[in-house]
Nucleic acid binder design. Structure first.
Lengths: 220, 220
DNA sequence: CGATTCATTGACAAGCATCAAGTGGCGTGG
DNA sequence: CCACGCCACTTGATGCTTGTCAATGAATCG
């Protein structure tokens, strides 16, 4: 794990949207590296500058529920408890600013970034709740795939296929399904030529409109 | 709907937890009164001073998903969009402070109340997501009933039974179930003498431990 | 006192979970 | 370098949980 004190001397730190160049520590993380862990001491918050991470909770039964997918601009680990109640790791390579919990109050720009992120994450959770509460397996999978596609196409456009950074198990844990159901749903979409899989993590949406219809369809 | 300008001359306004006595308009609402509606102009935020309200979204299919139950201290309607994306109404009689969206930034205490509430609501949404994603009907119902009970017993203790302020349909829409499943689950719990119903909205938890076990049980 | 809303109950079917047995790729160590 | 094991996934058979549909009951309201 690369780590260095931030002194505003890196191009990465000159992002104009947050004037937090001199605050916190910049982490350059590979994919699938932990940010914080449930029950750990909640000393720091993590501002994601680039990449995708996920927040999850392990349940007493050994099951896992993925709570959120967090992206650039999001702050996680912000709590008034002494220990984290959920865990977090990166899905893609990430640049993350680690800031002491107590320093959040100091900087106006960090505070407003936190508020902004809380607001956006809350709305994302609302979407997630709708998905979990009122959609069938197919709608869940389609909605997630569309979301991941929009994420990529925002960065690098004109690509016909995109990378799915979650394993089938992670998709299942995000959508409240089993691994097997996720696999079968993928197969179904492939059979009906709505998607194409180059390999398991490289996906092309063939029929975008069919996909959108299915994503907003209510089955249960 | 009672409405009056807040001038700090009412006992209701002297709540010490928020020094917002001179900000916004105080609303005294009956149960089941709307606060704001999806697609309405998002001009104001609503700080709940007492009572319980719910936030929901209507889906294209005509279905409804209840997103959150909000209580004293919570702020809802806070968004950077020009229009609300969800709707909100009271479940119980409520005292609500209505504050112009643009005034939120002005008052330090309001700002910190907003942040505090966003944080708490986000964690509540996480709980909700776990419930929707990883629990069976019985666990969902038990968890909600326990939550409602704790809410009441925090206010007026020593009562053997408590009031359920949601209809069966609302419970279903909160838990991502159908009305029928909720009814059957209630009947089951009653038959096994885990709860008792005086009338449909007056409930007593007979076997608290059995209830807690069921609430954290994973079925699906 | 009909009309409306909300809830109850039963019969049935569908969707998804569970269980079980395999497949395929990848890294490790003999 | 190949065998081995591991991990993530794939595929199939089966059944439970929960949704759907339909008919009825109870409470509220103008």
């Amino acid at each position: 794990m690369l780590e260095r004190q931030s002194r505003g001397d890196s191009a990465l730190l000159q992002s104009p949207q947050y004037e937090t160049n001199t605050l916190g520590t910049l982490l350059v993380l590979e994919k699938r590296q932990p940010l914080f862990h449930s029950a750990g001491s909640a000393d720091e918050v993590y501002l994601i500058e680039s990449g995708l991470a996920l927040v999850y909770r392990n349940l007493p039964s050994g099951q896992r529920q993925i709570l959120e997918l967090v992206q650039a601009g999001d702050v996680c680990g912000f709590t008034d408890r002494s220990r984290y109640v959920s865990s977090c790791y990166t899905l893609t390579p990430c640049i993350v600013r680690r800031i002491r919990q107590q320093d959040v109050a100091v900087s106006t720009s960090v505070r407003s970034a936190v508020t902004q992120s809380l607001r956006r994450r809350l709305e994302a959770c609302h979407d997630h709740i709708v998905l979990l509460g009122r959609s069938g397996a197919e709608a869940k999978v389609c909605a997630l795939l569309l979301w991941l596609r929009d994420l990529e196409s925002a960065a690098s456009s004109n690509r016909t296929s995109f990378h799915v950074p979650l394993t089938r198990t992670e998709i299942a844990d995000y959508l409240g399904l089993t691994l097997e159901t996720v696999v079968r749903t993928f197969k179904d979409l492939e059979r009906r030529q709505i998607i194409e899989l180059n390999d398991r993590y490289d996906l092309r949406i063939v029929a975008l409109e069919a996909m959108r219809e299915r994503a907003s369809q209510i089955n249960r």
